[in-house]
Structure formats: structure tokens, C-alpha cells
Amino acid sequence: MSIHPSILECRSVGKVYSAQVRGAGTLGILRGFVRRQVREHVALANIDLAVAPGEIVGLIGANGAGKTTLVKCLTGIIPASSGRCELFGHDAFALTRADKRRLSLVMGQRSQLWWDIPAIDSFRLLREIYQVDAARFERRVREQAERLDVTDRLQVQLRQLSLGERMKMEIIGAFLHDPEVVFLDEPTIGLDLLSQETIRTFLREVNRERRTTVILTSHDMADIEETCDRLVILEAGRILFDGDLVGLRRRFVGRRAVEVHLEANSRPWSAELDGELERFGAVLVREAPRALTFEVDAEHCQPFIQHLFDLFQVRDLAVERQPLENLIREIFRTGELVEAS
């Protein structure tokens, strides 16, 4: 439990969308026009969440799990259908202008800068909106552009920048006014590895230097592993896991992932080999045509590997501590609601 007061808090938050459903066939279309069938879709259900200042929280989940909806409720874009969302101690949907100066939002799939003009001109507009004084503005732009390696691209029309450069500009814009809380909705989507790494480093540095609270949604586990202290896993609008990454790893500390690459002439995996796994308490977690990944307790790892050499023609083999991706897959697989650590 955090000793700090929360900078944002959700109490039993729910969000329900109404979606129109069309009947089948021509008659269904006409009937639907006269009498609409509406189906309610629960995007969020009973969400309880508290985030302390300076935390970096990773929000993950499958498509439609409710990540973006939660971010929209927390930033006051849309009201929650039930419960209460608070940011800076105020109702998130009724934030004052002073509150809004303390937050920022970056949406990976939707540019917030002006498409037809150079980014620097958009920044000047943001400067007026957030009332940043001129000297601080110039310094911030220069520093951040240097960190993100886009200094020479500031004067280029946004439409003429690459996806990675555009996202870096979005991030500069988001951090111009030195916000206390930044929400990033899939900021690395579609970016190359180098750009992703630059952005992650930037987020870590800003968090360390200014204690900026960061809420990050992503499908990329590397974003979460390299950036976040805390992980929140959403599924079907519920929180499936909320805790720190160290705690999550500790739950699986005694497990190892064994990845085996097979020679072309090796026997393939088949169901009759299940019995061979049971002897070691191992589980097959991923199967590809010439590659298998198993999970096994650390104490059985060595004999299990020896046995694998007996079973298959092994071309290559790697042993790792359980990667985060597997841990999350395990949580999703069991559907287990994990206590916050």
C-alpha cells in the first residue's frame, strides 16, 4: 500500500456503451430502422485503482479490454457511467483549467498536433494554451528535441515527418508544460526499435528527474518491462492484476522458460509426448514448426534439458528466467484475479 496520497483514483468505476444491433436480412434492416435494438457493452466494470505521484503504471490488456476507455475516463474526456474517477482530488469529468494544466495526453493512433504545419508552430500554440513563459518554452523545446534526436526536424511540416518523428513531436508537445501526470495511449505503436527505445528512455528520464506520473497503455511488453514500476492488467473491463513488476516476477521466480530449436530431421512435437513433460512438471507454452517453448521449475531444469536432447535433434537451446510476456499469458490463461502486491 502506498504511503503517498493518490494523484489519481478510481472507485468502483464502470463505463457502459450502447451499441446498435442490426437484425439479419432485408426485413431486419427495415425493422431496425423502426425499432432500434440496442445492446449495452460493458467497457469497464468496478475498477478500483489508485496511483501515487511519480509512479509509472503500465496498463495492458487485449483489444477491447478497456484500456483506452479507462484513460478517457481518467482524463475527463468522457464521464464514467458509475463510480467515481478522481484526478488531483477532483472529479475527472469536471476538471478545472488549472487541473488541466497539470496533465497531458498522448494518443499513439491520433495526432494532436496540426498536420499541415511544422511542429514548432504547433508548440507555440500549445505554449499559449498552457501559458508557458517564453524562456522556459524555448529551453524545454531545445532540451526535449535534443533528447529525442529531432532538433533538425522541428521546422518540417508534420505530414512530412516519419511516424517515429511524429510521435516524438507529440511527446515533446505533451511535456512542454511540465505536466504532473501524463497519459500515453500506445505511444510506440508502429515505431521502429530505435524510436521505441528512445521514447522509453525519455519517459524514464523525465520520470526520474521531475517525478512525473506516467500512465502508459501498450501492447508491447518491452514498453512495460523497460519503463513501468507497476502493472495493471485489464480483461473485459475488469482489473485482472494490479501490482508491481517485481512482485509479479517473484510469483514465478522459481520458473524457467526453455526454448528449443529443432533440426529439420528431428521428430516434431506430438500429443503423445505430454507424458514426458509430466515427469518434470514442465508445460509446453508455445509451439512453432521448428521451435518449442517449455516452462519448468528451476530445480527440474537440468534433467529436463538432458531429456529434451534424448527426445529431439536439438539445433539450439536457450534458458531464461520467465519473460514477462509468459507471465501475462499465464494470468490470462488462468483468468486468475491477482491480489495487488
Partner: peptide
Amino acid sequence: GKLDSFRVRPGATLFL
């Protein structure tokens, strides 16, 4: 849903 970014800015949404 293109009004999201205006909603989080510190100004009158209609004006912005």
C-alpha cells in the same frame, strides 16, 4: 471522437 484532445486542454473546449 476527434474532440478528445480539446477536452483535456486548459481552455474552453468550444473555443479551442
